[in-house]
Design a protein around this nucleic acid. Structure first.
Lengths: 212, 212
DNA sequence: CCCTCATCTTACTCCGGCGTAGGTTCCCCC
DNA sequence: GGGGGAACCTACGCCGGAGTAAGATGAGGG
C-alpha cells in the first residue's frame, strides 16, 4: 500500500519523453506530500525508480522542476474556469458551474491543487507571480461576466470577483479536508447559492434604495 | 530608510524581558519579509543588534521562535473577530464589523498577518494545526451568529461560514497588495454587502420557493 | 575595591541536501 | 557484430545555515 505509483522494475530504460513524464508525476507526488522545501530530489528520483543524475538530465534544477508543475496545473485551473463560464448563458447556472470547477480542481489529479493554492515557495518572486496571475485570471473571467450583465464599475466588479474566487477556493479546500462531512454536490450547491444570492440583481436592489 | 527598527547601539545590555520582546519584534520583521525558510537566525540576531547565542538563550530554536509569533497573532485575529461580532446586535452591522476586523488585521502590525495567512511552514503539523484552528475559530464565531438567527442546519451554517471567512481573508489580502486602487472603507463595505446579500433572509427566500 | 553572576561575543562544529564528475550498460543501426 | 550514443549508476564536493563551546565584559552588592 506504500507502493509508489510508478517505481516499476528499477532497471527498465525508458525513452526520453516517457521518462520525463514519469519524473514529473513522481515529483508531483513528493512536492504535494512534503511541500517544496521538505521535498528531496533524492526522494523524487527514488520514487521514479531512477537515480538522481537522471533527474538532472531532464530538468536543470529543483526549482525548474517545481515551476514546470506549477505552470501546468495553474493552466488547468484557469481552463476549467473558462469552460465552466462558457458552458451556459444562464448566470445562475454559471455560478454553479464555476464553483463546481473549483471543487473539481481540488478533488482531482493527486491533490495537485496544493501546488497552486498552498505553495510553500510564495516568497520566491517567480512563484508568487505565477500564483497571483492564476488567481487574477480566474477573477478576471468572472469579473467579465459580472460587468457584462450589470452596471457595476470595473473596479468594484473586480474586487467582488476576488472575493468570490477566494470563497470558492477556501470552501473547496475545506470541503476536501473534511471529506465525508458533506457530499460534494451539496457543498457546491450551498456555496454557489450563497454567491448567487450575493450578486444577483445587484444594481436592482441598489436602485431600489438598499442602504448604502 | 533601511534602518532596522531597533538595532540601537550594538552594545547596550538589556534586562531579560525587554530583550525578549525586542527579539520577537526583530524575528517578526524577518519572518514576514522572508518567510520561515529563507529567514536566517543570524539576520534576526543582527537586526536586534545582538549575536546569535543571545537568541538561543531566549528561545530553544528557530521553530519555537516562529511558533511564539504565530500563536500571538492568531490570538489577535480571533479576538478582533470576537469583538467585532459582539459590537452590535444588528446582523447587517455585524457583517460589516466582521469584515472590517479582517481588513484591520491585515493592515496592522507590520504585516504580521502573513505569518497567519501565508506561512511557508504549513507542511509542519504544528503550524498547519494552528493555522486551521485559527481559521475554524473565526468561522465558528460567525457560524454561531448565523445559526442563532436562522433555521440553517449546523453543518450548512458551518460551511457557509467557511466560505465567508475565505472571502474576507482573500479580499483583505488582495486589497492590501493593491493599496491605492480602492480606499479601505469602500473595499470593506463592498465585500460586506456581497456577503450580507448572500446570507440575509436565507430561509425566507428558501421558504418562498427559491429553486433548490 | 573586587567578587559574582547575568549578559553578550567570537569562532567554531555538524549536517542535510543540491548539484556533478566520471565511469558503465544496453540498445540500435549500419 | 561492433561502434556509438543515449540512458543510467555510484560516489563525491560543497555550501548555507542551525545550533554550541568557551571565554570576555560590565553592573551591582558586600
Amino acid at each position: 500500500m506504500t507502493a509508489p505509483s510508478d517505481a516499476r522494475a528499477r532497471g527498465t530504460r525508458l525513452p526520453r519523453v516517457r521518462r520525463r513524464r514519469q519524473l514529473l508525476a513522481a515529483a508531483q507526488e513528493v512536492f504535494v506530500a512534503r511541500g517544496y522545501h521538505a521535498a528531496a530530489m533524492d526522494e523524487i528520483a527514488d520514487r521514479a525508480g531512477v537515480s538522481k543524475p537522471v533527474l538532472y538530465q531532464h530538468f536543470p534544477g529543483k526549482l525548474e522542476l517545481y515551476l514546470a508543475l506549477l505552470e501546468e496545473h495553474s493552466e488547468v485551473l484557469v481552463e476549467k474556469q473558462r469552460e465552466a463560464l462558457e458552458s451556459t448563458d444562464d448566470n445562475r447556472q454559471r455560478v454553479i458551474a464555476s464553483f463546481r470547477a473549483y471543487f473539481d480542481f481540488v478533488a482531482g489529479d493527486g491533490e495537485a491543487f496544493r501546488l497552486v493554492f498552498e505553495s510553500d515557495l510564495r516568497n520566491l518572486p517567480a512563484v508568487r507571480e505565477k500564483s497571483e496571475e492564476t488567481f487574477q485570471r480566474c477573477a478576471e473571467l468572472i469579473g467579465a461576466v459580472i460587468r457584462q450583465d450589470t452596471s457595476i464599475s470595473d473596479e468594484e466588479a473586480h474586487l467582488l470577483s476576488i472575493g468570490l474566487v477566494g470563497m470558492a477556493e477556501t470552501s473547496a479546500r475545506y470541503w476536501l479536508n473534511n471529506h465525508g462531512s458533506v457530499p460534494k454536490d451539496a457543498a457546491e450547491q450551498l456555496v454557489a447559492r450563497l454567491a448567487w444570492r450575493g450578486i444577483s440583481g445587484w444594481d436592482l436592489h441598489r436602485a431600489a434604495g438598499e442602504q448604502d
